[in-house]
Design a protein around this nucleic acid. Structure first.
Length: 591
RNA sequence: CGGGGUGUAGCUCAGUUUGGUAGAGCGCUGCCUUCGGGAGGCAGAGGCCGCAGGUUCAAAUCCUGCCGCCCCGACCA
């Protein structure tokens, strides 16, 4: 960063909006290892295809080598991201992957972050970590470099290898431990400025995923461990996605189901009936309870015991609802929540498993009830003694109503919280996440500037991530068929597969292919010239597996008539094109 | 971290129950034939059977410990 504001570059770097032309390559001098067999330990199709097509190779759990073919795709993602980051005036830099523990102690995250943070020591036994994210480092940088409000707002980004020691890496590069991420950070004098940068970033993200040809959706999200006031995730829609998102059919409402809200229907409130106990021997589940008492599930309030930061909490929720742990965690302001073991639950409530209820719980035991469960009248619940349940309970009369909160997961078809539409649930792969961080880090680390009046103002921050390597996998999930990958043009490692038939036998074929190879390069079309002396079937299968979007075949058959065969990767038939028209034809097909 | 699996040729896997010369397919090397959708034949190379102990005349195989990897659950770009 330059010292004086006047010296800063003001214009965004102008970038060619089309992807980099890439490098031409001959198959005989390119490292390509494809396989017919699907590796046994690859679960999802993107992982299988990445291994089969020779994009990546596993070194250890969650550790992958990017082979030349895969790296070309990865670079294409980076290229698109750089172009859009530069276009909104974010400045690229590169921070160390290894970070001193001192910074993390300052922000408070050295103790908060948990085992996912890979901690190391150098020869002097000083503590370090391999950065899973870079809020501390960038904040440290900016507090040293930025002194004046005139230098704000400012945005920085980097594309770098991160490490998160996931408990269970899976799905190849989709959830690896080491992965490539673009992380950006913005610094502001006030919230209005943060809002503007956040919006610019949000729009840049949309343009990135659009230009990569991906079907995506931006959704409201939990801020999680990073913290902050507002956050949205960008999801590539795919059935194999690990996240579930709820989206309204009519309005723009869309949210991760970790926080999605709805307006659920409840049974009508009835006049209170006298409560009574019912003998329900051996009942363990709400289904059995409903069966045994002849009640619908929505007339049952079930009791779930959780351990929140070490303390037991009883959660009441409607019998047909599912407890949403992310919502509960926020409602309780807890760092960690898990379901209680049966013996822990019994110790806390004094009641055996299956018979816990709101009536007669030990004094001082923390309870919380979901809004919908709180609205149920004449409900059934456990009697806190073996083999008995209450029926016709009513909050306030039979048990004190605990604090209420939204604790349930939304269900398909429920009413949108914002309009009259209904919610649909789809699965998504989280490829981006943007946050309004506020002043959490800048306050802890004392990052401030002087304003016009010479007052010290703590900077307000935003942070914005894209999982670069994950985007590659997500793109394959969305673009493949039984033959292999089908790259969207901007991601393709090569644009055109140039395949010869009997090129090693026919000089005419070889010569024509060489000419074409030259012309394709001159046209900036990154050709992959399969000059191997292999049978056509082998070459076709490889070109399709590795997903090259366009294929041109040079064979004696057509050459005599001066023609070539063209086929789009998604098509099943050839088009016959005159030799001299092929470049123009490809240009049209590439759009 | 809990539960379940698995480790044998570069890859995918038999062989382990019942201890006795290390196997197949794919891939790789050479030759022949074939030549428009992953061809065929012949000849070959390639193994600390995860590691370390133990039992036994003899261990890929049985026992003990450790390690790696995968799957299911709780956590996250």
């Amino acid at each position: 960063m330059t010292g004086s504001p006047g010296g800063r570059a003001t214009a965004a770097v102008v970038c060619d909006p089309s992807p980099a032309p890439g490098i031409a390559m001959r198959a005989t001098s390119f490292h390509l290892t494809t396989t017919k067999e699907t590796p046994a330990d690859a679960e999802i199709v993107s992982h299988q295809l990445m291994l089969r097509a020779g994009l990546t190779q596993k070194l250890g759990a969650g550790l992958y080598t990017w082979l030349p073919l895969g790296l070309r795709v990865l670079r294409n993602v980076e290229q698109a991201v750089r172009a859009e980051m530069d276009a909104i005036g974010a400045q690229e830099l590169l921070m160390p992957a290894i970070q001193p523990a001192e910074l993390w102690r300052e922000s408070g995250r050295w103790s908060k972050y948990g085992p996912e943070l890979l901690r190391l020591q150098d020869r002097h036994e000083r503590d370090f970590c391999f950065g899973p994210t870079h809020e501390e480092v960038i904040t440290d940088l900016v507090r040293r470099e930025v002194r004046s409000y005139r230098q704000l707002p400012a945005s920085y980004y980097q594309i770098q290898t991160k490490f998160r020691d996931e408990t269970r890496p899976r799905f190849g590069v989709m959830r690896a431990r080491e992965f490539v991420m673009k992380d950006a950070y913005s610094f502001h004098l006030d919230d209005a400025s943060l809002d503007a940068s956040y919006q610019a970033m949000r729009e840049a993200y949309a343009r990135i995923f659009q230009r990569l040809g991906l079907d995506f959706r931006a959704v409201r999200a939990d801020t999680g461990a990073i913290g902050g006031s507002m956050s949205e995730e960008f999801h590539v829609l795919a059935d194999s996605g690990e996240d579930e998102i709820a989206a309204c059919s009519h309005c723009a409402y869309a949210a991760n189901t970790e926080l999605a809200a709805s307006r659920p229907t409840s049974p009508d409130a009835d006049a209170p009936l006298p409560a009574s106990e019912a003998h329900t021997p051996g009942v363990q589940t709400v289904a059995e309870q409903a069966d045994s008492l002849g009640l619908p599930l929505e007339r049952i309030v079930k009791s779930v015991v959780v351990i929140a930061d070490g303390e037991p909490v009883v959660v009441f929720i409607a019998g047909d609802d599912e407890l949403n742990e992310a919502k509960l965690e926020r409602a309780l302001a807890a760092d960690a929540i898990r379901l209680a073991e049966p013996d822990e639950a019994q110790r806390a409530t004094g009641s055996p498993r299956g018979f816990i209820g709101p009536v007669g719980l030990p004094a001082g035991l923390r309870c919380v009830v979901d809004h919908r469960a709180a609205a149920i009248t004449n409900f059934s619940s456990g009697a806190n003694r073996a083999d008995y349940h209450w029926i016709n309970l009513n909050w306030g009369r039979d048990a004190e109503l605990p604090p209420t909160a939204d604790l349930r997961s939304v269900r398909e078809g429920e009413a949108c919280p914002d309009c009259d539409g209904t919610l649909t649930l789809t699965r998504g792969i989280e490829v981006g996440h943007i946050f309004k961080l506020g002043t959490g880090y800048s306050e802890a680390m004392e990052a401030s500037v002087l304003d016009e009046q010479g007052r010290e103002i703590t900077m307000t921050m935003g942070c914005y991530g894209i999982g670069i390597s994950r985007v590659v996998a997500a793109a394959i999930e969305q673009n493949h068929d039984e033959r292999g990958i089908i790259w969207p043009q901007p991601l393709a490692p090569f644009h055109v597969a140039l395949v010869t038939i009997n090129g090693h036998k026919s000089q005419a074929v070889a010569d024509a292919a060489e000419t074409l190879y030259e012309r394709l390069q001159q046209a900036g079309m990154a050709p992959f010239y399969d000059d191997r002396p292999a049978r056509p079937g082998v070459k076709f299968a490889d070109a399709e597996l590795i997903g090259i979007p366009h294929r041109v075949v040079v064979a004696e058959r057509g050459l005599e008539a001066g023609t070539l065969e063209y086929r789009d990767r998604r098509a099943s038939d050839n088009e016959i094109i005159a030799f001299d028209d092929i470049i123009e034809h490809l240009r049209e097909r590439m759009g």
